[in-house]
């Protein structure tokens, strides 16, 4: 192994190495860390973020950014709670992901027809979506104390939270989509070299719209898990989630320049952030250091991936 190879290996699997190191450290420092209960709780708490980060992976591979998924999450939260209270709880759970899909589709249309960078377009649409969510909920909490609504976020199947099952299923479907289908191939090519993709007869706008629609759907799906768990729909739900999702994707090692990446990486990124959080809770360290540490970890991850981009 030459030094370059070692470095390349470290760069490729940095996130997994960090996870392993952190798990060993936390197990040594606290008895309550390495328990099935604690680990399952971590997964349960982070399932919504993991679902959003999985879909964000597609958006970033296709060469975009979606800063509106937090706002779509808010729309999903308000829409599902409102429908649950006023129409039917099951309909609320069922429809919110499709509300997300529609909003994501609108994002894609805005980006491709106006030809603006997704970064700008989704800042604008985030404000619009958030505004609609505030207007719909009248700025208040919509409380839904119905078992027909809360089963999704609180219940378990075969001893494991429903949210974890949903997360695993969603990540597997996206992985399949990305690695085994022609759609996935097109996603990589659009992000890797859009001009080459166009000249290969690919309708690149459709691919971009689809990626943003999937990200919207994921935000809607994530929102029903959280909303049904806390039994409250509100327009401030999901604030900052878009940045956490993007941070997790980058932390996992997906290239911010597009064209390269994988869903498992984003899951690992979410898990790494969650472990840091969990560690601070278990060891009850001042939360100030938590943000500081997270920031340093993300900076290190971005720096590490940038080293490979040079030359």
């Amino acid at each position: 192994m030459t030094r370059a190879k070692v470095f390349h290996f470290l760069q490729t699997y940095a996130v997994l190495i960090l996870i392993a190191a952190l798990m060993i450290a936390l197990s040594l420092m606290s008895d309550s860390f390495l328990t099935g209960r604690n680990l399952l709780n971590i997964l349960n708490q982070n399932a919504p973020l993991a679902i959003m980060a999985s879909a964000m992976t597609l958006v970033i591979i296709v060469g975009g950014f979606d800063l509106s998924v937090g706002a779509i999450f808010a729309m999903g939260s308000v829409a599902s709670a409102w429908l649950a209270v006023n129409v039917d709880p099951y309909l609320g759970l069922l429809l919110a992901p499709f509300v997300g899909l529609a909003l994501g589709f609108a994002n894609g249309l805005a980006i491709t027809t106006l030809r603006v960078h997704s970064f700008l377009a989704t800042i604008a649409t985030a404000l619009i979506f958030k505004g609609i969510a505030v207007a719909l909920s009248d700025g208040r909490l919509i409380s839904v104390r119905l078992d027909e609504f809360t089963w999704l976020g609180r219940g378990r199947f075969l001893g494991v939270f429903n949210s974890v099952w949903l997360m695993v299923a969603f990540a597997l479907i996206l992985t399949f989509l990305l690695t085994r289908t022609t759609f996935g191939r097109r996603v990589f090519s659009v992000g890797g070299n859009e001009e080459a993709a166009i000249l290969s007869g690919i309708r690149t706008n459709r691919i971009k719209i689809a990626a943003f629609a999937i990200a919207g759907f994921a935000a809607g799906l994530a929102s029903i898990i959280t909303t049904s768990r806390v039994a409250v729909g509100q327009a401030t739900a999901g604030d900052g989630l878009e940045l956490q999702a993007i941070a997790a994707v980058i932390l996992g090692g997906t290239s911010i320049y597009g064209g390269q990446g994988a869903v498992w990486r984003s899951l690992a990124g979410v898990f790494l952030l969650a472990l840091v959080n969990n560690g601070f809770n278990i060891l009850s360290i001042d939360p100030f250091f938590r943000d500081l540490t997270m920031g340093l970890i993300i900076l290190a991850a971005v720096g590490l991936s940038a080293v490979g981009q040079r030359r």
Binding site: R180, T181, T182, F183, G184, R185, R186, F188, S189, G191, G192, N193, E195, A196, A197, L199, S200, G201, I202, S255, G259, Q260
Partner: peptide
């Protein structure tokens, strides 16, 4: 600039314009 997707392997570059012919119902025949 216009030809290759530099971040993809040789195989994926060659097949890019012909994805329809090497897939069935959208699933790649590796």
């Amino acid at each position: 600039g216009q030809g290759l997707v530099i971040s993809s392997p040789v195989r994926a570059n060659i097949s890019l314009p012909h994805l329809g012919a090497i897939s069935a119902r959208g699933i790649m025949a590796n």
